[in-house]
Write a protein that binds this DNA or RNA. Structure first.
Lengths: 130, 130, 130, 130
DNA sequence: GTGGTCTAGACCACA
DNA sequence: GTGGTCTAGACCACC
């Protein structure tokens, strides 16, 4: 039971709060974060990544509004039980499509063959960050 | 000799000036914009897309700082001759890596297999926007 | 810990934004501005020198494109950590060459001997503006 | 009697017309261009350097206003006889000082020692452009 | 609090 | 004709 670890890049162009929101969203939809799972506390995440607690809080609030996580008094946030139905492959592919599409466009514009790009993709997929 | 036309989406979340910068950058690095090629004038682009000339100018200035384009006094901007050497595959892959890396992370988080993701990638790559 | 102060001359022929860019560039490359150092905020510089914030922002943006400084969200700009390696003498000489070359050409055209010119150079170098 | 050749850099930040003005001025003051010497025709200079004849003309006009050159009907421009007194070393050094001062400042800011800078200067002085 | 983006308009310099 | 510079002001996003 490794505690959930966010993968945050402060110098990315995508805002920190959104990086958190997106990760939780995908992991819940993908099923790797089951209903009822505890989320790390705002303070924990904030200190681990040296970011502002407000930022983490904003992400959690947004996820709560989306109905993906729930606040449990005196315990913190957990993955909402109501959202427990893992999405179908078709639906998950739908969510993946935009970034894949964008990546493909970049590859084409950079005149990189589909084979070279796919090779790179496999490499990156294999490299677990942790 | 179709004059270069930018593909601008004013309602995108990526700033207009950045859309221009990115397009030129990829076309130069990918080789589809050869050294010495004229860029459309600031005023032309601005009026075509109904945007402020300053916005276009900002994009051009940034590209000039990056060394991708050059000013020719009284004539406009051209693709820099110093960047005439089309980038090596290695360098272009370097530019592609970030988005591929991000796409791979998304796929993993969504619990989509590498094969399914690669299949999607090939589909997207094949679909020329034309 | 004197906060960084820019030396701006509004009546100079060199644009204000460029004066800022040049100062930061030389201080970073020369090592007097270490990696991680905070830069004064856009608004601070603007009000101190009674110039438009956009002008300062333009300078900072350009420095960011050059990779010399970084944005830290919600905090401001800092000297880029990637540029922490002070440039080699060779690289710094590369940056000095153009103006030296130009100065040498002027001396020759004015029929001033290399010795007289060097003497003048030593004098000027010695006079710290302090 | 090698015909006068201008050293023009179209990509310099100093305007082309000014490069011409400055060169003629320095060569007259330095004595290498004696009174009565012919200047190359506007067309010659323009075609040699692939620049606009208007630009050369503007430079010549400005030099004429300054009294450094004269228009001779049917023959072109010559170095003015009235300006024939070559300046003293002291006066010429005065003209050289600004750029030397600027070069010295750059060297200091780039943390380049006076000896290294002087060495570079001697190298550049020795390298005749032609 | 931080910087970013865009607009509108004026003026300049260069070719 | 080209691009550059600066201003003033509005609005947004992030921390």
């Amino acid at each position: 039971m490794v505690p959930l670890q966010f993968d945050i890049n402060p110098s990315s162009s995508v805002p920190i709060y959104k990086q958190i929101v997106d990760q939780v969203q995908r992991m819940v939809l993908g099923g790797s974060l089951g209903a009822g799972t505890d989320l790390p506390s705002v303070r924990t995440v904030a200190s681990q990544h040296a970011i502002n607690p407000m930022t983490v809080s904003k992400a959690y609030s947004q996820l709560e509004v989306m109905g993906l996580i729930q606040r449990v008094r005196g315990q913190g946030m957990i993955v909402a039980t109501t959202s427990s139905k893992p999405k179908s492959l078709k639906q998950r592919l739908e969510l993946l499509r935009p970034i894949i599409c964008s990546a493909a466009a970049h590859a084409r514009e950079l005149d990189i063959s589909v084979e070279d790009a796919v090779k790179e993709f496999r490499d990156q997929y294999g490299e677990e960050t942790k």
